[in-house]
């Protein structure tokens, strides 16, 4: 019996959320007195996979089939299911990403496993009860869920657990083949289009986020948001009305009907703090609100606030960050 961790890679690197998942998996394995094996998906290099030892992974399985570079639901499901059988994995852990959660739901049916997505903490073992805490009501609450049965799948929310680094430890990288055939790639994408990310930082994985609302007045003013984001090494985001009128692309829209983020730092500029917006950001560790209206509801959910005009305040903040060096 072991714990199987699904590690997503892109451009040769292990994604940040997968480093978190690897650490999480190693901790679950330790709780259960076993070891954690990883199965890598996406474009990886052996050298980078070996460093998963730093997160506590002992062995990494890697199928070098080139068509596994892009996400193919069926092929990924079969790959992971085959690895789970080989490793006799009772617990499979993935990132709660558009890849991890999509594969997780198929796997749960194929492997007759119970599944919890959006998990925010390590499991609790109460006797033979296996309990996980997951985000519910779109960031407004948590629910504790008992996973029953012999096999369990957990999809861990990004930025909710920390990746550990034990320098110098390496994992054994073992080649692996799930014997995939053409039919497994029938639902392969015909094209993959990547957007330009501000500074190359993906919003769902970002440690810091600078976000703008209608108070920014128009898309032509977004350089103020982008300058601060760049200085901080942050991703950019926006409120729903801003993406609805195409000031910003849809993938930047955070909130109950957009994406949920949990960075260490969320800076809201000219956003009122509607309940639907707060739901998507309230698990951020530190929230800063800049709004000219002292009564804006967002201040109640904030750690730090500045009552002022974004056009005056933002350049001051950017300058202060640059001064820090």
């Amino acid at each position: 019996m072991s714990v199987l961790v699904v590690v997503e890679c892109a451009d040769g690197e292990v994604k940040k959320s997968s480093l978190e998942v690897a650490s999480y998996g190693a901790e679950v394995a330790a709780m259960l007195g076993t070891t954690a094996t990883a199965i890598a998906v996406g474009e990886a290099t052996e050298a980078n996979l070996a460093t998963l030892g730093e997160q506590g992974i002992t062995k990494v399985l890697y199928d070098a089939e080139p068509r596994l570079k892009d996400f193919v639901n069926n092929a990924y499901t079969k790959l992971i299911a085959t690895a789970a059988e080989q490793e006799q994995a009772k617990i499979i852990i993935l990132a709660n990403s558009n890849i991890g959660a999509a594969v997780g739901s198929r796997l749960s049916v194929r492997l007759k496993a119970s599944l919890a997505t959006n998990v925010v903490e390590l499991p609790k073992l109460n006797g033979d009860q296996f309990v996980v805490r997951r985000g519910a009501f779109s960031g407004k609450a948590f629910s504790d869920v008992v996973l029953s049965g012999d096999r369990k799948i957990i999809a861990v929310k990004k930025n909710s657990t920390e990746a550990k680094h034990e320098a110098g430890k390496t994992a054994e990288v073992a080649s692996f083949s799930a014997q995939l055939s053409d039919t497994d790639f029938a639902d392969a994408p015909s094209q993959v289009v990547m957007q330009d990310q501000a500074g190359g930082i993906l919003l769902p994985e970002a440690d810091r986020v600078v976000s703008g609302g209608r108070g920014m007045k128009g898309p032509e003013n977004w350089n103020l948001i982008e300058d601060l984001a760049k200085a901080l090494g942050a991703a950019t985001a926006c409120s729903k009305p801003v993406s609805d009128v195409d000031w910003r692309p849809h993938h930047e829209h955070v909130g109950q009907t957009g994406i949920t983020v949990s960075p260490n730092l969320y800076i809201a500029c000219g956003i009122s703090g509607a309940i639907q917006h707060l739901a998507g950001v309230n698990s951020s560790k530190v929230i800063v609100v800049i709004n000219k209206d002292p009564e804006a509801p967002f201040f109640k959910a904030a750690d730090y606030g500045i009552v002022g005009d974004v056009f005056d305040v933002l350049p001051k903040l950017t300058a202060a960050v640059k001064e820090l060096g």
Binding site: S114, L115, A141, F142, V146, K300, A302, D312
Partner: peptide, 24 residues
């Protein structure tokens, strides 16, 4: 295959610390 045993609300914020705009 799963059962919710309990719900919880996120911890409340301690209150906002305001910084004057002049010394942002």
């Amino acid at each position: 295959r799963t059962q919710v045993t309990e719900f919880a609300l996120p911890p409340k914020k301690q209150g906002v610390k305001l910084i004057p705009a002049e010394t942002a």
